[in-house]
Nucleic acid binder design. Structure first.
Length: 107
DNA sequence: AAGGTGACCGGCC
DNA sequence: TGGCCGGCCACCT
């Protein structure tokens, strides 16, 4: 029962298991608004300050750390992912499909 | 109140 | 083969 759309996004993001990643589109689809993938990214933008939100586990559909620019430093996002056992090369997640995690569809 | 924007996605040229 | 454009929805000024 989330008050805002943001909270919904956060709720899904928080469900991302450690060592797994997902895409903005996947989250959007899980929320029932597959076309609002952009909104998901927007919500993540507002997730700053919420350590409960593993935003670093959220990447675009091709497994590229498109939002790493929003993290501190230049490769913090990559460091966090590698810390969870996810190999990242040049902002690209290796075997993205293997680490991909599909959020539960909750309409 | 209206317009602009965005860490995207998918299709088209 | 790669780059460009539009759509889509909700938040921000």
């Amino acid at each position: 029962m989330e008050e805002n759309f943001f909270e919904r996004v956060y709720a899904v993001a928080r469900q991302i298991p450690e060592g797994k990643v997902t895409s903005y589109g996947a989250i959007a689809k899980a929320l029932g608004t597959a076309r609002s993938a952009r909104m998901v990214g927007w919500a993540m933008n507002a997730c700053h300050g919420r350590e409960d939100i593993p935003a670093h586990r959220v990447v675009n559909r091709i497994g590229v750390l498109s939002g790493k620019h929003h993290f501190e430093g230049t490769n913090l996002m990559q460091q966090l992912l590698e810390n969870e056992g996810i190999e990242v090369i040049d902002n690209q997640i290796v075997d993205f499909e293997k680490h991909f995690w599909q959020p539960e569809i909750s309409q």
